[in-house]
Computed example of a mutant assay.
Amino acid sequence: MSSETSARLLRLLSLFQARRDWTGTELAERLSVTPRTVRRDVQRLRDLGYPVDATPGVAGGYRLGAGSTLPPLLLDDEEAVAVAVGLRSAAAGGALAGIEETSARALAKLEQVLPSRLRRRVGAVNAFTDAIGRRAPLVESEHLAEIAACCRDTESLRFVYRTYDGAESRRLVEPHRMVHVSGRWYLLAWDVNRDDWRVFRLDRMEGPMSRGPRFRPRTPPDDAATYVAKGISSSAYSQQARIILHAPESEVAQRLSPMVGIVTPIDESSCELRTGAHGMETLAIHLAFLGYEFTVVEPPGVVEYLRELAERIGRAVASADSAASLPSGPSAHSGPSGGGAEMST
């Protein structure tokens, strides 16, 4: 096989990995060859073990199929850097149990074949990056894969669920979709016994998990991400609030995490926040630290807690001002000679 043919095969393989379906004419134009040469090159890839599927006819074409082994991946420079950085981040500690070791092995393989210029770029990201913040609870990767398979195959799922206060219950659910928020994994599912939609934290779903009967998919009242965001920011709490923030929604959405609440625009200078807490006083403190001017729509009781909080803070400031105005230093307590009292040992 000539070097020209080998280079063309690599280019053809790269095209197959970049897009799912190609017509013979498109491939011929990309490779600057005839359709007949494309057919020969496709057969060469098959002889090398690549499962290239073909569909006949005018609308037919070629597609790289799934084989029994993983074929070599061809990445451009930006793709290689992105994959390496992602693997390094996962190796440093991801949200899935056991992913660190697997990511480190994959990263070692990738770095062996990276050109030096790309290896330096990836190394710079690692050398000049630090992580801070509380690590989210880990989720077993096999649990994640099992739940995803049930979502895909529309098969119900049985498991033991542990709430935040430690109470356990057996659940039978029809899983809809998983959502990843701020390092935590959530499952939106129809709870069969409660006859309603529920949001479950994956790290609180305990095994052994078992599959149940198939089900007909339902449509949740919101898209999965919005429903989960509501569930973890307001619906799950005993005290829920609607607040008007006097700031643009675009600014607030960038600053506040989805775990804080759901933000929707009202006009160019204000938006609505739906949030919650486990107590009225906690909710008042939570609102006081948002960093925006706001108006409480509901519940009205939180205004009283805010008034008490404002008065308490006002008294603390007044006390601090009074203390600062008092004379201090040795001259304020010295005797006629101006000296301090002696201390004997």
Results as ranks from 00 to 15, higher is better:
T5R: 15
T5F: 00
S6K: 11
R8D: 02
R20H: 08
W22I: 04
T23W: 01
T23G: 15
E26T: 02
V33E: 03
V33Q: 02
T34H: 11
R36I: 01
T37L: 09
T37A: 15
L45Y: 06
R46P: 03
V52F: 06
V52E: 04
D53R: 14
A54M: 05
A54V: 08
G60W: 07
G60N: 11
A66H: 11
L70Q: 13
D76V: 03
D77I: 00
V81C: 12
A84V: 06
G94M: 03
S103W: 05
E111C: 10
Q112C: 05
L114M: 06
S116L: 12
R119M: 01
R121F: 00
A124R: 15
V125L: 03
I132H: 13
V139Q: 04
E142V: 06
I147G: 04
C150V: 03
R152A: 09
D153S: 12
D153E: 15
R162Y: 01
D165S: 10
S169R: 13
P175Y: 10
M178R: 07
V179R: 10
R184N: 13
L188I: 02
R194A: 14
P217Y: 04
A225S: 09
G231W: 09
I232D: 07
S234R: 11
S238C: 02
I244H: 03
L256P: 09
G261A: 07
S269N: 07
I285H: 11
L287A: 07
E293P: 02
G301Y: 00
V302W: 08
E304I: 03
E308D: 11
E308F: 04
E311H: 08
A323K: 14
A324N: 06
L326I: 04
A332T: 13
M343Q: 10
M343L: 14
T345Q: 06
